[in-house]
Design a protein around this nucleic acid. Sequence first.
DNA 1: TATGAATGAGATTTCATTCAT
DNA 2: TATGAATGAAATCTCATTCAT
Lengths: 213, 213, 213, 213
Amino acid sequence: MPKISEEKRQARRLQILDVATRCFARQGFHGTSMEDIVRELKSSPGAVYCYFRGKNDIVAAIAEQRHHRESALLAELLASGDVSEGLQHLARAFLEMLQDPKEKERRKVTIQIWAESLRDKRIRKIIERGIRQRDMLTTSLCRAQRAGQLPENLDTDALSRVLLALLQGFILQQAWEPELDTKGYLTTAMHLINSVFRDAETNPVGCERKQLA
Amino acid sequence: MPKISEEKRQARRLQILDVATRCFARQGFHGTSMEDIVRELKSSPGAVYCYFRGKNDIVAAIAEQRHHRESALLAELLASGDVSEGLQHLARAFLEMLQDPKEKERRKVTIQIWAESLRDKRIRKIIERGIRQRDMLTTSLCRAQRAGQLPENLDTDALSRVLLALLQGFILQQAWEPELDTKGYLTTAMHLINSVFRDAETNPVGCERKQLA
Amino acid sequence: MPKISEEKRQARRLQILDVATRCFARQGFHGTSMEDIVRELKSSPGAVYCYFRGKNDIVAAIAEQRHHRESALLAELLASGDVSEGLQHLARAFLEMLQDPKEKERRKVTIQIWAESLRDKRIRKIIERGIRQRDMLTTSLCRAQRAGQLPENLDTDALSRVLLALLQGFILQQAWEPELDTKGYLTTAMHLINSVFRDAETNPVGCERKQLA
Amino acid sequence: MPKISEEKRQARRLQILDVATRCFARQGFHGTSMEDIVRELKSSPGAVYCYFRGKNDIVAAIAEQRHHRESALLAELLASGDVSEGLQHLARAFLEMLQDPKEKERRKVTIQIWAESLRDKRIRKIIERGIRQRDMLTTSLCRAQRAGQLPENLDTDALSRVLLALLQGFILQQAWEPELDTKGYLTTAMHLINSVFRDAETNPVGCERKQLA
DNA sequence: TATGAATGAGATTTCATTCAT
DNA sequence: TATGAATGAAATCTCATTCAT
């Protein structure tokens, strides 16, 4: 028997998550008290509990948000028929995301979620769903391999892990050094990736390496 | 109990750190209470405070341990005149480290340290010392570049970041999937890295890719 | 429980101070644990911390209460144009205060506050404000001196100290001997005080007053 | 079976009490830990426990020291046949005591002892012995009264309380204002006291002394 | 739904004291 | 006697959560 519309309810939920994200990015999950969130929200503890079961529920919801965003990015990547091209798109999308100042906060919270996943079953489950998504990337790479875009003897499962690692490492390094040269990192990372793709394609000549704008 | 030797004192310190590491790996830093540590240590709260100022001091000490271990690994890498070869050594050293069951725990704690570094000044300082160590790797890569082992237009700073990311991503993924195919990951990662090194040398032909034992 | 009125809030604050005063009088400040207070309050630790920052804050508040009460007494004394008469009033007011059983507790706590003031900056500040109030008494005595009510060569600053001492000593002795003859003490003290006042009247010359070497 | 002579033992005891007094004066009894004392003593916890049963035992010993010193002073006072003269001596002895820098510390500790006496049975007992000593002063004053040195209708018990209060108040005020004009205070206090003594001499009749209702 | 005072379990830390050496 | 590492009870305070209004 909600007195407010479902729409408003969702809006409020998001607002709470936003504030919580900001707090967690600033003080860490365990350094943020419910009171901190409530104060910044200009609300009351009881109100927050109308939307979330508790503090853990909030983190879980944030983790879920992340998961959806990542799924979307991956879907975009895979939508492109050509994986190599898809990766370029992904890289570009990444650069754009960095414009959003909220995104830096989110990356910091991501690291907290990683840590939290090691002890909170619920977060763990969400992370695991993310882990399983990598399988789709692997499948895609496999297809590329069968299409001759990748060396035959390449372990595509491992390659998808490597690609993921490049992303994860970046998140981490950027949390510590917010001013790091994002473009340089992406260019170099793409260079490495392209090396493998090129290898199979043509190889002898290795002509015109595509560089990121 | 009169004065104990500095030797014994260090041993006790290490024992506490070991137990704490085990607890942190299992329940997370914030999910572990001093009492948990003390119980597993079969000791008393006061005893722990003879060796550490408080809980944060313990995490800091563990972070410090990590830092030293990493420094040692990096030193080993750089000791080898040839960077490419050094990286091979590093990869091999890594494989060995994985034998140590304690190492898995330590990797889990590493992730907690990452998260903690975002809010604890002290941990942050230690991480920053680690960050600065990457410069040495960059310098080394630079030398390799001048020696013609790497493409001239390659951003060595970014490359060292990428190499670091490959490590960090692995730590993360292995924490979630302890059974992941370590060898496969390393082989593939080395493959990518070698691609760049090979690029500069000769490239057109690029045959006989070195694989990890 | 929604917001309570400022009035109720103040009432609750006072209730806590009352209970704390009772506990401190009985077991001393350092012999009273927060749990003791909470138990007697039939409340919970958290509740107390809604009103006070901590244990020290409670003592400070009690010290502050004392300070206000003393200020009021002094003001009453000074309000009377004639100091000599004012002191009589004060003495009488004192006798009345002794009826209040709470007052005995308060005097015991006063001694604790004295002790606490030697190490707690905050309490010290409050005491210092009390110390400065003595100046007003000195001023008043000075006026009486100029009016010929007190011997000319009398050190009014010292006299106000002496008057204060008579009060402080009484507080102390009554804490140890609750049944001491209050009336007798006051009578005798007033006798001494009146001696000085009378001195000026009758013996302008202050016939060979023995002075200390 | 002490291995050290009783003499040495006493010396060590005194040394401990001295250090403890210094600490208590500086940080208060409850702000001083055994470790503080031991550090300043350049000794070990165990050693202190060879001489005292515990922390409370140390305070009790200090209180005892005070008691002895006070007894001595009082004895000196009473030794003089003439009480009025005895009080002069006492005042002078007081001034001398103030030269001793240790004495200031002792006075601060005295206040702590007062506070402690309200909750520690042991200290309380010692204070009570001090309280009983006042009876001797009363007796002495009584004798002076019978000798006509004091007004007949004067309450000698109350007078001795008043005299004591003058001392206690001074101790307190000097703890807060170490630079207060000691000589002035004593002069004025003696002035008041002499007033009563003189009273008897000069006004046998005690001309209409105002009495408290 | 919203409020915010209250709850109370639990966490970290201190410190007087002990006792093996 | 002396040492000082170790003990462990207890103290203060925090904070996620609840529930009467």
